[in-house]
């Protein structure tokens, strides 16, 4: 995002513009008292969806996937349980361990802490989109070379986080890398290898590998 927005985009200035055409004023009145079903609301072009399954389209690893999910389904659960993309792991399920990390619009995020419906219209990259076992990306290659994995359950999350990190920090110091990957945890204790791997992957990436 650009640092400076035009004044017309500043909150509070353009608000009224968004109201036009939506017919929203008063839309919500009485909704919570159950006078209108979600279907009725949807038919009316309401901004309200669910609580039942709603169709969404997710753009994952460059492909569009259509699926139906309840609003309460997280992106992680949609990936794993609906789309069988099981590379992203469910570990803490509370946004603290990083095993579910995916890249959304270029930024690493915890997919366990994002609702699937919120991911609509965004470019999602999962571990499955980074490379294959036969054709690994530099981070994956470096993880293998430096044995930055044991049981491997945290590995996809680390690989995704490292890949995102290196994109914005192509020349990291050890300290940068340690800071940049502070949102991921490993239980087997592979950090020594991970540190070597990140720095090595940075070199490989620059070398065009």
């Amino acid at each position: 995002m650009s640092e400076k927005l035009k004044s017309s985009q500043v909150p509070g200035v353009s608000r009224r513009g968004f109201l036009k055409g939506l017919g929203v004023s008063g839309v919500a009145t009485g909704l919570l008292t159950g006078t209108e079903t979600p279907t009725e609301a949807a038919e009316r072009g309401s901004p309200i969806k669910g609580p039942g399954e709603i169709p969404i389209t997710l753009q994952i690893n460059g492909k569009k996937h259509q699926l139906s999910v309840e609003p309460r389904v997280t992106l992680l659960d949609a990936l794993r349980n609906r789309l069988d993309l099981t590379g992203s792991k469910k570990v803490c399920d509370r946004g603290t361990c990083g095993a579910c990390t995916v890249i959304v619009d270029g930024q690493p995020v915890y997919s366990c802490s994002m609702l699937a419906v919120e991911a609509e219209g965004r470019a999602i990259t999962t571990i499955e989109g980074l490379g294959t076992a036969e054709n690994m990306n530099p981070v994956q290659k470096a993880f293998v070379k430096h044995d930055a994995q044991q049981c491997g359950f945290c590995t996809p999350g680390f690989v995704v986080a490292c890949t995102a990190f290196l994109k914005t920090n192509p020349n990291p110091t050890l300290e940068d890398a340690r800071t940049g990957l502070g949102g991921n945890l490993c239980r087997c204790g592979t950090y020594a290898g991970i540190m070597d791997a990140v720095l090595d992957a940075a070199k490989m990436t620059k070398g065009g590998a």
Partner: peptide
């Protein structure tokens, strides 16, 4: 020697029991 299953783990295609659908 590199871990034999390193690539499948790093690529996220190793199917753990939790991943069996």
């Amino acid at each position: 020697i590199d871990r034999a299953d390193g690539p499948v783990k790093a690529a996220g295609v190793a199917r753990y029991s939790f991943d069996i659908n």
